[in-house]
Write a protein that binds this DNA or RNA. Sequence first.
DNA 1: ATGAAGCGTAACCTGTCGGTTACGCGTCCG
DNA 2: CGGACGCGTAACCGACAGGTTACGCTTCAT
Lengths: 117, 117
Amino acid sequence: MAGAIADPVRREILLMLREERLSAGEIAERFAVSRPAVSRHLRVLRESGLVHDELVGRRRFYVLDTGRFTELAEWLALFARPSGWEHHLDALETEVYRTRRERRERGVADRGRENTA
Amino acid sequence: MAGAIADPVRREILLMLREERLSAGEIAERFAVSRPAVSRHLRVLRESGLVHDELVGRRRFYVLDTGRFTELAEWLALFARPSGWEHHLDALETEVYRTRRERRERGVADRGRENTA
DNA sequence: ATGAAGCGTAACCTGTCGGTTACGCGTCCG
DNA sequence: CGGACGCGTAACCGACAGGTTACGCTTCAT
């Protein structure tokens, strides 16, 4: 996963997906590089679990998966000093889990196969 | 900096340096790879500001620089939800700055000699 | 049914990365 | 002194990452 975040294009994609889910094309047109290149970046993000995709008709939307960020936070916490922020990062973790649960509840309904574009 | 953290050997080195400062040799002997290889990993870490070196006689000690971790934390905070942990990461930042100030006071003595070929 | 739209994949090329060995330079010790 | 020690750098090399173009498969629209 660390490798996935190392690339500036992929980091930018992750930032874009904070706001809303975006289709592969919508993402690609915001970069100077070719669409296939972006497509592969998306694959890397997908395989590292940082995003997942939702197929809608002939379009493929990408959605941020906040869960994996927890690991980064945990690693970061290893560098905390005793008096420091480990505690806060615990709270962070809890928050992320909550997020995940909420998403699940909000609808497994639209997990694939939506209709009409 | 993101690239510096992408490599597993470098991440391991950073973990090792949490406890205490270590000389290049001490670090190298804990890895299977050759000493020059480790030496270059150390250079990458140095140039990305994650560690700095302290020359003592013919030995070169490496020390963790916690300051740069703040950036990672800040980036991570960009993915926080409104209700979430941004607040906690602010606290984290404060903590890191304190660490930096302490180190500065403890001694800037041998800040020298970095990148001269 | 047919053409266009939206995406992923394959094949290919190039630059960068991580590893290795050989070497050079400053430092400690007898 | 002179040799051993500690460490960085240079030169070289195989592996891989990321970019490009060409292409194929679905899905929508007419």
